[in-house]
Design a protein around this nucleic acid. Structure first.
Lengths: 179, 179
DNA sequence: CTTACTGTACCGTCCAGACGGTATAGTTTC
DNA sequence: GAAACTATACCGTCTGGACGGTACAGTAAG
């Protein structure tokens, strides 16, 4: 067998990282190739065009979201608490894929929007089983709010110090709503 | 004095509209000029470069945010209820400026991020006076979540039908937290 | 011999910004 | 009060650079 396509994942990771750190505008093919330590020709060997790069990222997101939903369902202290905690930027593969995709949605990318809506709905369904439909909505929006803020910080960890305390506060509020 | 600069406001409005509807990427100088019914030269007469356009938009946002904060403080059913209601996309000047600026933050625009942080903090302070610091955080994140979703819909009104019901649900949850 | 690349050269398009020109309203000078 | 001038408010065109994508020749590993 020939050698393995090591570049493919490197390119996808680089694309993700650039989307998070500098936004869609600056995530050019040249920049992605450079960051991945791959030639532009090599990049285009795996992804014939930019759309293919986006598609691959969205597929990665879907996969991670599915895994995350399973973890959420199985969370010992309830899916709502898990959801709030996991909405904090922790640099997990899921966080990265999510925020990176957010950047694409901002550029009015229809397919990306559809995927987000679908993922949100799945989460909402799981949350409703835990805390009922009303509180589920509240929790869902709080989670979106946390992501909204993570988006701004561009994947830096320093903004996180205060945010962790916020998560504890939100969990406290959730407890009050459970009763 | 010579004739009035009617084009200036038209250009800013057009820039805002394009940011909301098609994102930063497509809000080019040419597109803005065309939408504003102004020549590109005329646009650049008022705003020497794109950065100047952004600066003007952020100043507009600051102004509207100040006005909004005053309204929030004076709201009869409390600032928290006002905040949740006003976080729904209603196409107000404030909504438009906010979501438009959101698009810029996605492009990793530092100044925009700073402004957002400042506005958020002001809101949070007012909310805390109404419902205390913990619930204020929860309300603040819910509002961010609503904006996060409005951002995706790109300023279309049709996504709003379901959202209005969500606001009522969130207000209900808020009532439970007030007790 | 195939797969997985590197590297370079190139093309069409788009975009920010520069620039030269024009129309018009107010201001000064006689 | 009319001509001369000035400043403002634009218009239309051009250019240089970046970006997405193509093409293709070569190389190295399995």
């Amino acid at each position: 067998m020939p050698r393995k396509p090591v570049a493919r994942d490197a390119v996808l990771d680089a694309f993700e990282a650039l989307l998070i750190e500098v936004g869609e505008r600056a995530a050019t093919l040249d920049a992605v190739a450079k960051r991945a330590g791959v030639s532009k020709g090599g990049l285009l060997y795996h992804f014939p065009n930019k759309e293919a790069l986006i598609t691959a990222l969205l597929e990665r997101l879907d996969l991670l979201a599915d895994e995350d939903t399973e973890l959420m369902k199985a969370a010992p202290d309830g899916s709502a608490a898990y959801f709030i905690r996991s909405s904090l930027w922790a640099g997990t593969p899921m966080d990265r894929a999510f925020v990176a995709a957010t950047r694409l949605a901002e550029v009015a990318h229809e397919e990306t929007r559809r995927r987000f809506a679908a993922i949100q709905q799945r989460w909402l369904d799981v949350l409703a089983e835990d805390v009922g439909p009303e509180v589920a909505k509240a929790v869902s929006y709080m989670g979106d709010g946390l992501y909204f803020n993570a988006m701004f910080e561009g994947g830096q960890d320093d903004g996180n110090a205060g945010r962790e305390a916020d998560v504890e506060i939100l969990l406290g509020v959730l407890e009050r709503l459970r009763k």
